[in-house]
Simulated assay, not measured.
Amino acid sequence: MEGLGFIWSVIIGVIAGALAGWIMKGRGFGFLVNLLVGLVGSMLGGWIYSLLGIQSDGKFGILVMSVLGAVVLLWIVSMLRRK
């Protein structure tokens, strides 16, 4: 069952990265970049949720948290690129 957690992390990471890409620029980035953006976004979203005292439950809650974190990540990267 441990491998299933890893597979779910990859699936949620790819979906979160793709959704964040579509939200921020109108399209995704490709499988690997979507995965990286989603996984880093998941960590960032978890940190933001912990600061706000919010808890995510279930796969959908984790997906929402990951997308939020990935959008914030892409927003920060876009701000750094402009300078």
Score class of each variant (00 low, 15 high):
residue 2 E to Y: 13
residue 5 G to S: 12
residue 5 G to F: 15
residue 6 F to Y: 09
residue 7 I to V: 11
residue 10 V to A: 12
residue 10 V to M: 10
residue 12 I to C: 08
residue 12 I to G: 09
residue 12 I to F: 05
residue 13 G to I: 07
residue 13 G to C: 07
residue 13 G to Y: 02
residue 13 G to S: 04
residue 14 V to F: 08
residue 15 I to C: 14
residue 16 A to R: 04
residue 17 G to M: 11
residue 19 L to N: 08
residue 19 L to K: 06
residue 20 A to D: 06
residue 21 G to E: 02
residue 21 G to W: 01
residue 22 W to A: 13
residue 23 I to G: 12
residue 23 I to P: 14
residue 23 I to F: 08
residue 26 G to L: 02
residue 26 G to M: 00
residue 29 F to A: 06
residue 31 F to G: 13
residue 31 F to C: 08
residue 31 F to S: 07
residue 32 L to A: 08
residue 33 V to R: 13
residue 35 L to C: 01
residue 36 L to Q: 11
residue 37 V to K: 04
residue 39 L to T: 04
residue 39 L to D: 05
residue 40 V to S: 05
residue 40 V to L: 10
residue 43 M to D: 14
residue 44 L to E: 08
residue 44 L to D: 07
residue 44 L to V: 13
residue 44 L to T: 12
residue 45 G to N: 00
residue 46 G to P: 02
residue 46 G to F: 01
residue 47 W to M: 15
residue 48 I to P: 03
residue 48 I to N: 06
residue 49 Y to G: 06
residue 50 S to M: 02
residue 50 S to K: 03
residue 50 S to D: 10
residue 51 L to N: 10
residue 51 L to P: 10
residue 51 L to E: 15
residue 51 L to V: 11
residue 51 L to Y: 13
residue 52 L to Y: 07
residue 52 L to E: 12
residue 54 I to T: 12
residue 54 I to Y: 13
residue 56 S to I: 09
residue 57 D to S: 12
residue 57 D to P: 09
residue 58 G to M: 11
residue 58 G to K: 03
residue 61 G to P: 11
residue 63 L to K: 10
residue 64 V to F: 01
residue 64 V to C: 04
residue 66 S to F: 04
residue 67 V to T: 06
residue 67 V to S: 07
residue 67 V to N: 02
residue 67 V to Y: 04
residue 68 L to M: 10
residue 68 L to C: 07
residue 69 G to Y: 05
residue 69 G to D: 05
residue 70 A to P: 06
residue 70 A to Q: 05
residue 72 V to T: 10
residue 72 V to Y: 08
residue 74 L to N: 01
residue 76 I to F: 03
residue 78 S to Q: 08
residue 79 M to T: 15
residue 79 M to P: 14
residue 79 M to S: 15
residue 80 L to P: 08
residue 81 R to A: 12
residue 81 R to L: 08
residue 82 R to H: 13
residue 83 K to M: 14
residue 83 K to D: 11
